[in-house]
């Protein structure tokens, strides 16, 4: 999601508005932040699907970034509290959180034409389970996460959960429909990580050209 200043003074509607002259984009460093990798990939995906050279597009985007924080929350602070930048590339839930915590009269959410679907995995790690009691607790937690109640709670906090059976319909209605790319669209992390974010990868090359 894009978070922009109230009233969207720079008229930012989609990814291609971000590379315009004089636009300042706030996004964290993909080398240190997981969310930032998704921001980067979403921009890449947009360029690929709109007949643009993705390398050039992403390079132009990062040339508009005045501050590279180390984490997504740091970027939210830079944009919302320090007043830096015209647009923040944020997790959907972070964007809503910023609106709820810092005032709906200060920012607007802009929904771009393409976004990404990040699904952080959760797993039991067999080797880290010392005894059966811990295993039972961990299993219960894992199962609870996907219960209708827990999913409703996630939806309430602006996460797009799967199970909407117990959720407040208002919570579900807050999510606009849009194209969401998954990591498989980019070839999977095993391919993406070294190609884009590895040493001398495409992200590093953006800054080597300067």
């Amino acid at each position: 999601m894009f978070l922009v200043r109230e009233g969207n003074p720079k008229g930012i509607e989609d990814w291609d508005d971000l590379i315009a002259e004089g636009i300042q984009v706030i996004t964290p460093n993909p080398k240190t932040s997981g969310g930032a990798r998704w921001n980067y990939l979403a921009a890449w995906g947009y360029a690929e699907r709109n007949g643009l050279d993705p390398r050039e597009f992403v390079g132009a985007l990062y040339r508009n970034v005045p501050v590279l924080d180390t984490g997504a929350r740091g970027s939210t602070t830079t944009f919302a509290q320090r007043g830096i930048g015209d647009v923040l590339l944020a997790w959907e839930n972070e964007a809503h959180l910023a609106l709820a915590e810092l005032g709906e009269d200060q920012f607007d959410i802009v929904v771009p034409s393409i976004s990404v679907l990040a699904e952080p995995p959760v797993a039991l790690v067999e080797g880290n389970l010392p005894d059966d009691a811990t295993r039972a607790l961990a299993t219960a937690y894992l199962e609870q996460l996907y219960s209708p109640e827990a999913q409703a709670m996630a939806l309430r906090h602006y996460y797009r959960a799967w199970d909407v059976s117990a959720a407040d319909p208002e919570d579900v209605a807050r999510f606009p429909d849009l194209v969401r790319l998954t990591i498989e669209d980019f070839g999977g992390w095993a391919e993406v990580q070294p190609l884009h974010f590895g040493d001398d990868g495409i992200f590093d090359q953006i800054y080597q050209g300067q």
């Binding site: 590279l68 924080d69 180390t70 800054y207």
Partner: peptide
């Protein structure tokens, strides 16, 4: 430093 620097490569 990382909070105040901006952390732009180069």
């Amino acid at each position: 430093v990382i909070f105040i620097a901006g952390n732009l490569p180069n």
